[in-house]
């Protein structure tokens, strides 16, 4: 029991004293999760919106593929990305292995289907009366599209929060592609895995608390936004 209590105190100590390796892991986590989220949102949002908004041939099949991608195991993404960005791989010359950029690629692949699928479902769930209402108020096709997009903003926020939850807690990709390099690609999750492996529970708990705190802040600011 002692080491759990000890973990809480150690957490405060590490953070207040500005422990270099702890803060670098926190910063690495923030960087990779924000960047992967940004890229997957910028790409996934329009894709999800179009899939949900328009009717086209093969839509059902596309949704099935998307839902399958949702369940993609992170170690498999890690493996594939590793194979591509290793010096031997087709993208080897960019030297992305063991970098934060490499992790961002993996996490983006992880987050993209989440953003796309949830956005598509949200858009599909738009009240059919909305479109009718907009037409009856005189809206043209362009206005209808932009207004629909704005109407589902909370659903889109949900998609982004979900994606954030996946990327910030991910460990397989960060470990395989990042290589858990101290001060560089060690993220909170890979650090926790390492500390647990080494039997250093206190440090692991400290980092876990930071992760929970970040998640808490993100969700808090979202619920605040939603209330506006």
């Amino acid at each position: 029991m002692d080491f759990i209590v000890e973990g809480f105190f150690k957490a405060l100590e590490l953070l207040i004293n500005g422990d270099g390796s702890t803060w670098s892991a926190v910063l690495a986590t923030l960087k990779v999760s924000v960047w992967s989220l940004l890229i997957s949102t910028v790409t996934g949002l329009p894709c999800g919106f179009m899939i949900g908004y328009f009717d086209f041939k093969g839509k059902k099949q596309l949704r099935t593929v998307l839902d399958t991608l949702l369940a993609l195991p992170t170690v498999f993404i890690g493996l594939v990305v590793y194979a591509f960005i290793s010096r031997q791989g087709p993208l080897g010359e960019f030297g992305l292995l063991f970098t934060l950029s490499g992790i961002v690629i993996g996490l983006t692949i992880l987050a993209f289907p989440v953003v796309t699928a949830i956005t598509a479902s949200t858009v599909e769930g738009i009240d059919p009366d909305l479109k009718l209402t907009l037409i009856s108020l005189g809206a043209g096709k362009r206005h209808i599209l932009t207004t629909c997009l704005w109407e589902v903003r909370y659903g889109i926020l949900t998609a982004i929060v979900n994606a954030y939850g996946r990327v910030s807690t991910e460990v397989g990709i960060a470990m395989m592609i990042g290589g858990n390099i101290k001060y560089h690609t060690r993220t909170i999750t890979t650090a926790i895995a390492l500390e647990t492996n080494k039997g250093m529970f206190a440090d692991g708990i400290a980092l876990g608390l930071v992760l929970i705190t970040i998640a808490f802040i993100v969700n808090l600011s979202l619920s605040f936004l939603r209330k506006q």
Binding site: L30, K31, V34, W35, L38, L100
Partner: peptide, 9 residues
């Protein structure tokens, strides 16, 4: 926040 993260990266 996003800009800062971006520049930091």
């Amino acid at each position: 926040f996003f800009m800062t993260m971006g520049l930091a990266a």
